[in-house]
Write a protein that binds this DNA or RNA. Structure first.
Lengths: 118, 118
DNA sequence: CCCTTTTTCAACTGGATGGTTGAACAAAGG
DNA sequence: CCTTTGTTCAACCATCCAGTTGAAAAAGGG
């Protein structure tokens, strides 16, 4: 799973990680702070943050012993752009309501151009 | 992984499934059509479509022996709304941070000249 | 220097996932 | 009927992933 988009989607597929993102949107926080509300070990949360970091969704700095976690907006943009592109395409096709289904079984024509099928 | 958002993000974490979505945005297609370009088995593609279907991203109808696959826009909306909510929140916070950095005087010490005030 | 706090690393475990092959089911069509 | 076409089911395998516990590293503070 090399590419960033795959890592980002996979990172947000976990409810705990989405919750971490939601809380980081409010304020930066340390690993300990973030782990407190959950009933899993601190190490587990540290792993979740590593996944988010490798996806480029968060970054970490250093401040004494602490490692404050900060949300990075850029990759979120990547994701919405990807999703919106195809959602829009699908909706436009839905709006046209052309006779795509007719062309599927015969003539092998990949691009049906029936305009006024109704 | 019960909830829809988790299933949707997980579904799009796979490059093959994202490619399927991209192609389905152009036109509905059958499993066989969709499987053709890849060098994996048709059963593997069928499994991918099942994942997309259980995430609510596609639906399938019946047409003779074929099962045309159709993209559903609704869950894509759910995803973008989730992402955009926190991205916006994070960006607003970032904008406020800039404002704070402009007026550096803060927290007790009025002669705050620590740091590289370049 | 030890000691404390905060975080990460290492090794292990159970369960999900993506892939395979082979058989079965569903719906025409000879 | 039996065959052909399109799709799914079942069983299996390798790998990945989220969780655990225990030890170690990093950075200050007494």
């Amino acid at each position: 799973m090399a590419d960033q988009l795959s890592r980002a989607f996979a990172a947000l597929a976990d409810p705990t990680r989405r919750d971490l993102v939601a809380r980081l949107a409010v304020a930066d926080a340390t690993v300990g702070d973030l782990a407190a509300p959950y009933d899993v070990s601190l190490q587990a949360v540290s792993k979740h943050l590593k996944v988010l970091e490798e996806a480029g969704l968060v970054s970490r700095s250093r401040e004494a012993q602490r490692r404050p976690v900060h949300l990075e907006a850029e990759v979120f943009d990547l994701m919405t752009k990807w999703i919106e592109r195809y959602r829009r395409q699908a909706e436009e096709r839905f709006a046209r309501l052309d006779a795509v289904l007719d062309s599927l079984s015969e003539t092998g024509d990949p691009t049906a151009e029936e305009g006024t099928a109704s």
